[in-house]
Amino acid sequence: MTTKATFRIWRGTKEGGEFQDFPTEVTEGMVVLDAVHKVQAEQAGDLACRWNCKAGKCGSCSAEVNGMPKLMCMTRLSDLDLSKPVTIEPVQTFPVIRDLVTDVSWNYEVKKRIKPFKPRKPDFEDGTWRMHQEDVDRVQEYRKCIECYLCQDVCHVLRDHKKHDEFIGPRFFTYVAALEMHPLDTEDRVEELREANGIGYCNITKCCTVVCPEHIKITDNAIIPLKERVVDRFFDPVKILFRKLFGK
């Protein structure tokens, strides 16, 4: 069964742009990315759109659908009100290259700045380690991240306040949590969390958790536990005194 729907898609470059309406026929089972591809095929062959897997695993087709950051390939048209135009625009936090494609390379630079994984000495002579499942359960959640950067897009510290120089964003707090809470890791990232990574800027709006397509509880399970580690180190006088007295 086909239905008529209008897609209001942002077209332009970093110099500027505007929304254009594309009325098109849609069928049952389509997702937003299918509709964008249909518009590309039938009405706007030069419409720029980044995509790859169409399965919600590559994190390429991030955009804002009706104002909310979403993966276009995982947003069903049946979940949208098609009686009104569906707006599709590029993510707001990063510079537009063209149409729906943005330059997310800032994220790659941020990742390079984070202290890498530094495992303890191997447990056995063959250079291997043994870990209990209960020790890695927690970090496995963080490793589900597909780096779609929807959390970076929705985070108001980056989106509205442009604190890119002082704040690494929810994606990289999740990354730091995966390293910092890893049972084999010996590196200490708590000081840089406070200073260079700007974790104090997070005011716990939980928007990152809301938009995460992998349903990672970014705020509750990554950011807040890291904030608590920062409190241990810098703001809890009893812990500070205990460390000074007993050296741990």
Partner: peptide, 18 residues
Amino acid sequence: MTPAGASAARRGFGQTSR
């Protein structure tokens, strides 16, 4: 280290495409 090029301009209070 801000991203090269400008990201979207900040929206006013209550402005959204939602």
